[in-house]
Nucleic acid binder design. Structure first.
Lengths: 186, 186
DNA sequence: TTGACAAACTAATCACATTAGTTTATGATA
DNA sequence: TATCATAAACTAATGTGATTAGTTTGTCAA
């Protein structure tokens, strides 16, 4: 008895995201997604154009969720507090959605408009906050890149289990954030 | 006419590394490695215990090369210059071996002593330099984590093509390094 | 009521990983 | 020198996942 109209691209993508968060990004196969949705593999092709398109859709979903998360954290704040809030929100998102978070970077096609827009949103939020610090020339761009590299690197190593020592990771992240913020003050 | 004794584990791993650097880590398949070595797929099983073992071997190779690279950069230097040299060497390695570099990030199995040792080497080199700055308590650990997160995040974003704007990336990396070094001075 | 369409399905094919079992070159030993 | 155990190659077969082609069947609108 085929042809029940419950599936769509968003539902398929969400299922993939849940699998990614729960079992890791490498466990996201069409077979796994189909099974979770109670459907045969080829049925997924009505909604996504194959595995790499599904990965692309996951990247877009992740980037948009992340941007929303960061936006909420930044609103109503400014200066050091805004930077800290953004960094913390970014990290919290990666913790809450480790699989989805990794999908952003693995996007097969980095040219996709929605993905670019959502990624740019995050950077713009950060850039606007940093510009208020009154840095000159391209220094604000360097700072944005530095902050983004730092958060990304930190959470990537965390998610992968790269920090062996038992010392509190929150404190390490605080040190990193504070140190970079000091570099924003001329 | 089988049985020519030229292959061994190191050769297979190296071939995989070259493929990874040239075409990306996801292009490392037993099929691709076998073809490059002019051999049938099952022959590889005489030297590695399957694809996931091959990935482990690549991680070990990468970690040891990276540690060696960083060690050479650090020797004979101290203070700020040592930190800068280490950061630059780390980044240069990732640029020279983008595929291998990504291979090292997988969480090491607890039994993989060589991988753990090589990874620890890099951290120890950094830790020894940083301890000379005279930070107190666990602060040296926070600093090591911060520096590592920063380099890793930066090169990961670079390799993935995450920096859209044309502003010089070397300068951005310099800003990041300098800013973190400032945090090492009490 | 019916017909077009969307969305499910089955079947077939291809690539890759893995295992089992076979062949052969090589190096040590009688 | 002959032979023999072994390591390293091979062929063959199996399983999983992705993909495409072609078929069936609900559903909605005319």
């Amino acid at each position: 008895m085929p042809a029940k109209r419950n599936l769509d691209r968003a539902t398929v993508t969400l299922a993939a995201g849940i699998i990614a968060d729960e079992f890791g990004i490498e466990s996201v196969t069409l077979a796994a997604v189909a099974e979770r949705l109670g459907v045969r593999i080829p049925s997924l092709y009505n909604h996504v154009a194959g595995l790499s398109d599904l990965r692309q859709a996951m990247a877009v979903l992740a980037a948009e969720l992340l941007a929303e998360h960061v936006r909420r954290a930044a609103v109503g704040r400014s200066g050091d507090a805004a930077v800290i809030a953004i960094m913390d929100a970014y990290r919290a998102f990666a913790h809450a959605h480790p699989g989805l978070y990794r999908a952003v970077l693995r996007a097969p096609d980095a040219e996709e408009t929605r993905l670019i827009a959502a990624s740019q949103d995050v950077l713009d939020i950060l850039l606007r906050v940093i510009e208020s610090f009154g840095l000159r020339d391209g220094e604000a761009i360097h700072a944005v890149r530095g902050l983004r590299s730092a958060v990304h690197g930190f959470v990537d190593l965390e998610v992968v289990g790269g920090f062996g020592m038992p010392l509190d990771r929150d404190e390490s992240f605080g040190w990193l954030t504070r140190t970079l913020i000091q570099g924003l003050h001329p």
